[in-house]
Design a protein around this nucleic acid. Structure first.
Length: 470
RNA sequence: GGUGGGUUGGCCGAGAGGCGAGGCAACGGACUGCAAAUCCGUGUACACGGGUUCAAAUCCCGUACCCACCUCCA
């Protein structure tokens, strides 16, 4: 079975056929760095990280471009409100975003271009559009340049809308537009805006419109035609529709497939002001570990809407600890060579069916626990190797250094704790031998209170740090 | 007005004509001094009303409710 994915443009699951054999080019619309990233923002990062890892697993040489839009109306407004330079706000939020991605083991892309670094490329593209008769400088002397939607007959094809059915923006000041649906490629500088937020162009100083940066950067790093373009569902229109129109009007075939991830929302309430803060990545990470938050996201299909709740998050965390628990229990020496389970491969090939893929992990863990209980260490080890391989593909391998050092990585400390715990366990064994169960249980409680779980096995008790304690 | 998505057991969350995905919780059993961990077992779930079919959660028609986008948006 080959890799198949749902293409938003054609509204069907299609076989993935790359433009160039063995290679895959992906462009993901990253974020506009204007505020602290929240859980919803990073979902696309996690989803497309899984895509990238799966394509790499399938043997593709992946070029993954994820941009950052670091200049736009909102950044300018917010920075002005906060009384600081816009680039300082954008840069700080960019760093916050990096931290959030790192906390969720979202691998860095091949390159992360930012809009402000690609103004000349955008100017070139705009000039091409004017030459070809698909864009025009506003006649009102504002210095704006607009895309002429009426000049592009297939405008609306990505989202299957007809221009005449669209509502024109009510607030849209028609300014120098020929049609209210025309959108800005270039915005002439206004006196109210900082000089630093403008660049020279043939149409006077100004700054790029919202959509043009992605067209320019995708072309620069992936070429006029590339394989997959992604982002959140809300970007389909206008952002992606406009990107496609611009690029194709400029003569570029653009993306072969469009992938859009669904939203994460919160119970009843909008994820804006009031709740926005409680869902910032750092605040959520006070309750669960990054790996557990990632597991929660990956356990749902990327095209399914997720209603975020801390209860569901905690539940996912508990389920993940069960997997980790098995990894620890089955960690016996000896090498085994096994492939990914076929059911897992099929699930991933079917439009990144991570929910089914996660079910295969659970199945393998249960089977591993079963053979472990039966004393078949070799079979258990084989199951463990499979589980680790599956987790790796999903970016969920607890042993991945990306998750940072864990307490158990400190061998000296582990050895010291081992001596102390062993001593207590010996006392407990003595108490149990004397049938002094009150004393035995007291020792067990004492150890547990220190965040250490003990497991009684036929070969005697073992200890481990309780998963999930932070 | 236009374009899409959704409603699945106590909860989360898959599936897209035919054997009850998986997880969490619960209950019973095994193991245990008791627990924990682990294993085994236990559920007549598909918003509502019609229809098609040997067979419908899945297809068709209708209804209700929810959500997203229509130039700020992950």
């Amino acid at each position: 079975m080959t890799f198949r994915l749902y293409d938003t443009a054609t509204r069907e699951v299609r076989d993935f056929v790359p433009l160039e054999e063995g290679k895959a080019g992906i462009y993901l619309c990253g974020l506009t760095v204007q505020s602290e990233p929240h859980v919803g923002h990073v979902r696309s990062g996690v989803n497309f990280d899984v895509l990238q890892r799966w394509l790499a697993h399938l043997g593709y040489a992946v070029t993954f471009i994820r941009n950052v839009t670091d200049i736009d109306d909102k950044i300018l407004t917010k920075a002005a409100d906060q009384g600081r330079p816009w680039y300082n706000l954008a840069y700080e939020m960019h760093r916050e975003l990096d931290k959030a991605y790192a906390a969720l083991n979202v691998a860095p892309p091949t390159y992360e271009p930012s809009a402000t670094g690609h103004v000349p490329e955008m100017v070139e593209l705009i000039a091409t559009l004017i030459e070809r008769g698909h864009a025009y400088a506003a006649a009102d002397g504002s210095g704006d340049v607009y895309f002429d939607v009426r000049s592009w007959p297939s405008y609306g094809e990505l989202t299957h809308q007809r221009i005449d059915d669209m509502e024109a923006a009510e607030d849209a000041d028609p300014r120098g537009k020929r049609d209210p649906r025309d959108f800005a490629l270039w915005k002439g500088r206004k006196d109210s805006e900082p000089q630093t937020a403008s660049w020279p162009s043939p149409w006077g100083r100004g700054r790029p419109g919202w959509h043009i940066e992605c067209s320019a950067m995708a072309e620069k790093y992936l070429g006029a035609a590339f394989d997959i373009h992604g982002g959140g569902v809300d970007l389909r229109f206008p952002h992606h529709e406009n990107e496609q129109a611009q690029s194709r009007a400029a003569g570029h075939p653009f993306a072969s497939y469009w992938m859009h991830n669904a939203w994460i929302t919160t119970a009843g309430e909008k994820m804006s002001k009031s709740l926005g803060n409680t869902l910032s990545i750092p605040s959520v990470l006070q309750q669960v570990r990054g790996i557990e938050l990632r597991f929660y996201m990956v356990a749902a299909h990327y095209r399914s809407h997720v209603e975020f709740s801390f209860e569901a998050l905690q539940e996912a965390a508990v389920g993940f600890r069960r997997i980790e628990n098995f990894l620890e229990r089955a960690n016996t020496p000896g090498a085994v060579d096994v492939d990914l389970p076929a059911a897992f491969v099929d699930a991933m090939n079917d439009d990144l069916g991570t929910p089914a893929a996660v079910a295969v992990i659970h199945d393998t863990v249960r089977e591993g626990n079963r053979v472990l209980a039966a004393g078949d260490d070799t079979a258990a080890r084989a199951a463990r190797v499979q589980v680790v391989a599956m987790l790796d593909v999903l970016g969920l391998n607890p042993a991945d250094p990306a998750w940072g050092p864990t307490a158990s990585d400190d061998q000296q400390l582990t050895d010291a704790v081992d001596v102390l715990v062993r001593g207590l366990l010996d006392q407990r064994a003595q108490a149990r031998a004397n049938k002094d169960f009150a004393a035995a249980d007291m020792i067990r409680d004492q150890i547990k209170a220190a965040g250490i779980a003990i497991t009684d096995t036929p070969d005697g008790p073992t200890w481990s740090l309780e998963a999930g304690t932070k």
